[in-house]
């Protein structure tokens, strides 16, 4: 039983993760390093990486700020009635249940060029759908629960004692947050940041719908992978995928490290 189980474990990992990763690698380098390199330094790819970078940066910054604030509000603000807090708390999880493709569709339906709001904004020179702002919005929607759900349990666990002690010693809310609350939650926040970065970089469905996948304009690294596969450009697709997978592994290692820090 034990032998069988361990064998199955090895097999599953091998088949599902290790062999496919190896194939990405071998396919990326199937035309040698130069093929790999030219796929990556192709202007289209460079632009896609740039777009992904901007997307990740903007989404991570906004999501961290609002995620931490909302977590504080949901856990600490006693001025809001319990009912309302429970409701808000349930809403936080909704994006988990929404297919990313629907997440993108929502933004299209609300702000697309055929909607009143979208047309109005476009008349005033603000382009949201098929442009970066829409992609950021879609990614924010998808990543929203990640930060809140990391920070809330930590806040609950540390309790209010230390914060109250700081108040009785004369510290205001700003100082109390930075000197007392923040040191306790920062590893949780870091964990949330890493999750957000990974998800923002990897988000595909929502971004694909909202961006229109316009080459050299709104194409991100993941939608480019998709397009290259559709065009049967496997070397290019795998080169990009290889870089993205390498990044995911870095993310994974950071998570392991942050988890360990979080526990002490």
């Amino acid at each position: 039983m034990k032998k069988l189980n361990i064998t199955v474990t090895y097999l599953v990992f091998l088949l599902l993760l290790i062999i496919p990763l190896g194939q990405v690698l071998s396919s990326a380098f199937s035309t040698g390093f130069s093929g790999f390199w030219s796929a990556l330094t192709d202007p289209q790819a460079l632009h896609a990486f740039l777009i992904s970078g901007i997307l990740v940066g903007a989404v991570t910054a906004l999501n961290t700020l609002f995620g931490v604030l909302l977590a504080m509000l949901l856990v600490r603000e006693t001025g809001i009635s319990r009912r309302i807090r429970q409701f808000l708390n349930a809403v936080v999880d909704l994006p988990f249940a929404v297919s990313p493709i629907i997440g993108g569709l929502m933004i299209l339906l609300l702000l697309g060029p055929h909607t009143a709001l979208g047309a109005f904004l476009e008349d005033h020179g603000v382009k949201i759908v098929f442009a970066l702002p829409g992609m950021i919005l879609a990614t924010l929607f998808v990543t929203f629960p990640l930060m809140v759900r990391e920070v809330m349990p930590v806040l609950q666990e540390i309790g209010t004692d230390q914060e109250e002690a700081a108040y009785t010693l004369g510290a205001g809310s700003w100082r109390t947050f930075w000197r007392v609350t923040w040191p306790s939650i920062r590893w949780g926040v870091l964990y949330g940041v890493v999750l957000t970065v990974a998800r923002a970089l990897g988000e595909f469905g929502a971004v694909l719908v909202v961006s229109g996948n316009i080459i050299n304009k709104t194409q991100s690294a993941t939608t480019l992978v998709y397009q290259q596969v559709e065009n049967f450009n496997f070397v290019a697709a795998n080169s990009l995928a290889f870089v993205l997978a390498g990044f995911s592994i870095v993310v994974l290692m950071t998570l392991e490290w942050a988890k360990r820090r979080k526990e002490v």
Partner: peptide, 20 residues
């Protein structure tokens, strides 16, 4: 007055020392 402005010292049941 908020706690900051009452000029009191408070010793908590489980001390609530700033642990970091």
């Amino acid at each position: 007055l908020p706690p900051q402005e009452r000029g009191i010292g408070f010793v908590f049941q489980n001390y609530a020392l700033f642990k970091h």
